[in-house]
Simulated scan of single mutants.
Amino acid sequence: MGVSASKRVKNSLANSRSFDSACDSAYAHCLSLTQHAFEGVLPYQLLAASAHLHHTLFTLRLPLVIKWVPFPPTRAQVDSALRAVTRKRHENDGKSSVSCPEDEGALVLGPALFKEWALVVFAEAIVGNATKAVLTRVPIGIAGIAGIGAIARPGKDLIGAAIGIYALGVATSIYVSLSG
C-alpha cells in the first residue's frame, strides 16, 4: 500500500491549511494565557492546547479529525507526543526551537516545535483510533461470515477466502480513508 499509515496521516495534516491555521490559533491562545511572559508554549499548557486544537479542527470540519478523533487527545497522548518530539530534536544535536530558560528550568516550545508536536499528537490519535476500528470490525465480520458458512456449508476453502477478502477489504478501506 506504499507509505505507512502514520506517515500518510502526518503528510495529510502537514499539507492542510486548516491544520496550520488551527496550530497558529492554539499557539497564540497559549501565549495570550501566559500574557506573553515566555517565548513559547510551556509543557503544562499542552493538554489545553490539544483541546483548543481539537475544537478548532472540528469547527473547521477537518475530515480526518471529524472521522477519527471524536474527543480531544488524552494527557497520555499529549505527553507521549511531547517526549517523541523532544527526543527527536535532541537526537538531531539539539537544533530546534526548544529552549530552557536558566531561571525557570522549564522546556519552552517555539512555533515550529509546537506544530511538530501537534502533528505527532493528532497523527497518533488518528492512527490509533483507525487501528481500533480495524480490530473491532474485522472480528465481527469474520464471525458473521463464519456463521453464514456454518449454515450454508459451502466448504472450508470458500469460507477462508471470504474471510481473507473481507479482512483485507476492511483494512484497505480504513487505510485509504486516512489520506484525509
Rank of each mutant, 00 (worst) to 15 (best):
V120W: 12
R75Q: 14
K88L: 10
T131P: 08
T56F: 02
F19V: 01
F114K: 00
A112G: 09
C23E: 00
V85L: 11
E104A: 10
I145L: 11
A123N: 05
L135Q: 14
P73W: 03
L82S: 00
V176C: 12
A161E: 15
K132M: 08
A125P: 00
L178E: 00
A22V: 02
W117E: 02
R8F: 11
V65F: 06
P72N: 02
S173F: 09
I66R: 15
A37P: 01
V69M: 06
S21N: 14
M1T: 08
L60C: 07
F19A: 00
L113S: 05
Y44W: 12
F19H: 03
L82W: 06
S16A: 13
E124Y: 09
F122Q: 02
N92F: 10
A161P: 03
N15V: 04
D157N: 13
K95H: 11
S25W: 05
R83M: 09
S18A: 12
A84N: 07
G2C: 10
L62D: 00
I66Q: 15
C23Q: 01
G110V: 03
T86E: 14
C30H: 03
A26T: 04
G149T: 08
R89H: 08
L119P: 00
F71N: 08
F114N: 01
I145T: 04
G144C: 14
T56R: 01
K88E: 15
K67G: 06
Q45S: 05
S80L: 11
E124Q: 14
F38V: 13
L135F: 09
I126G: 00
N92G: 12
A152R: 14
F71D: 15
R137P: 04
G144M: 07
L113E: 07
A125E: 03
H52V: 02
H90V: 15
P70R: 06
T56D: 07
T172E: 15
H90E: 13
E39P: 06
D157P: 05
N129I: 05
A171G: 09
L119T: 00
G141W: 00
H36C: 09
G164R: 14
L62K: 01
L107Y: 12
S96R: 02
V134W: 07
R75V: 07
D79V: 08
K115G: 01
L178H: 00
R87F: 15
T172Y: 11
D79T: 01
